[in-house]
Simulated scan of single mutants.
Amino acid sequence: MDDVAVGPLDLVARVDDALAVQALAFGLSDEEVGVRHHIVLRHMASPGATALGAVTPDGRLVGFTYGMPGDRSHWWSTVVEPYLRREGRDAWLDDAFVVTELHVLPSHQKRGIGRRLITELTDAAAEPRSLLSAIDTDSPARALYRSLGYRDLARPVYFPSAASPYAVMGAPLPLRGARRPG
C-alpha cells in the first residue's frame, strides 16, 4: 500500500483537506462542498463520531472515512427507515455503527487504502453491525463493501437532492477479514 499511513484524523481541523478528497473522488461541485462542510462539522460533534485518514509521508491526505453510532433521529436514519421498514429490516437501525463517508483520491484507489480505512474504522466500533449507503450501481466501492460482508438491505433509496438512487447496505461486525481489538 505504498507508504500511506492510516490512523486517527482530526476531521474538524482537516475538514477542507477531506472535502477536497471527497470532491475529487465523488465529483462534487464547489457548492456541494460548501454544504458538506457544515454537515461534517455537525457530525463530528455527535457522541461516538470518529474519523480516520490515509496520509502520505509529507502529510498529504489521500483518503478518509468517518462514522458514528446510529441514531434513529439523525437525518440519514429518517430518510432510510421507510425503505428498510418496507423490506422488514428497520431493526438494522438499532445498535449499528454508520459509516458516513469513505473516499480515496482516484490516484490512490485500488491499493487497499479504502479497505483498510473502513475495516479499521469499524474494528473500533462497539456496535454489533454496520450500515452505510452507496450509489446503487455496480461500482468498485460496492464490490469492496460486498467483499467485506455488506449486503443490500434496501434499494433503490432516494435521498433528497441526490441525482442517483442509493442502496443501504449492512454487515455484521467485525467485517470479513477484520479483527476487533480486545
Rank of each mutant, 00 (worst) to 15 (best):
R155N: 02
D123Y: 08
V80S: 04
A154E: 05
V168E: 03
W92G: 03
D138W: 12
P106Y: 07
V104K: 07
R176F: 09
E127C: 03
R129G: 04
A96D: 01
L153E: 14
V80R: 03
R179K: 14
S147E: 10
R155W: 07
T122N: 10
R146Y: 02
E87C: 10
Y158C: 10
A154V: 03
L132T: 06
P181V: 12
D136I: 00
S164E: 14
P82D: 09
M169Y: 04
R180G: 13
A124Q: 15
F97A: 03
R142Y: 02
A125W: 12
A124H: 11
L144Q: 09
T100N: 06
G114A: 13
V104Q: 12
Y83E: 03
S133H: 15
H108K: 06
S139W: 10
G182Q: 14
M169Q: 10
L153C: 08
A143T: 15
G182I: 11
Y158W: 14
T119Y: 06
P174S: 14
T119D: 06
D152I: 05
P174R: 04
G112A: 07
P106M: 07
S139A: 11
G170K: 03
A125Q: 12
E81V: 06
F97G: 00
G149Q: 09
T122V: 15
D90S: 13
A141P: 03
R180T: 11
V98T: 10
T137N: 02
V98E: 13
R176S: 08
A125T: 11
R85V: 05
P160I: 13
F159A: 06
G170Y: 05
D95N: 15
G112F: 07
R151W: 05
L131E: 10
A178I: 12
Y145I: 04
R179C: 07
G88R: 11
A163D: 15
Y158G: 01
R179S: 14
W92N: 02
Y150D: 02
A125G: 11
I118F: 00
P106K: 02
S147L: 11
L148H: 06
Y166L: 10
D123Q: 13
L102E: 06
P160Q: 13
R111N: 07
R116M: 12
V104G: 10
G177Y: 12
Y150S: 01
G170I: 05
R142C: 09
M169H: 00
G149S: 13
R85K: 14
P106E: 13
V99A: 02
D138H: 10
G112C: 10
Y150R: 01
A178Y: 09
P181W: 12
A143F: 09
A125R: 05
V99F: 03
I135Y: 00
E81C: 05
L121R: 02
I135C: 00
Y158S: 05
T119F: 05
A125S: 14
I113R: 00
R180A: 15
D90A: 15
L102F: 09
Y83T: 01
E87L: 06
G170N: 04
G149M: 06
P82S: 04
T100D: 12
H103L: 01
Y166K: 05
G88D: 13
G114F: 09
R115V: 03
L132Y: 03
S164G: 00
A141F: 02
Y166F: 15
H108Q: 15
L131F: 13
D152E: 15
R115F: 07
L102M: 11
L121S: 00
A178Q: 11
L84S: 02
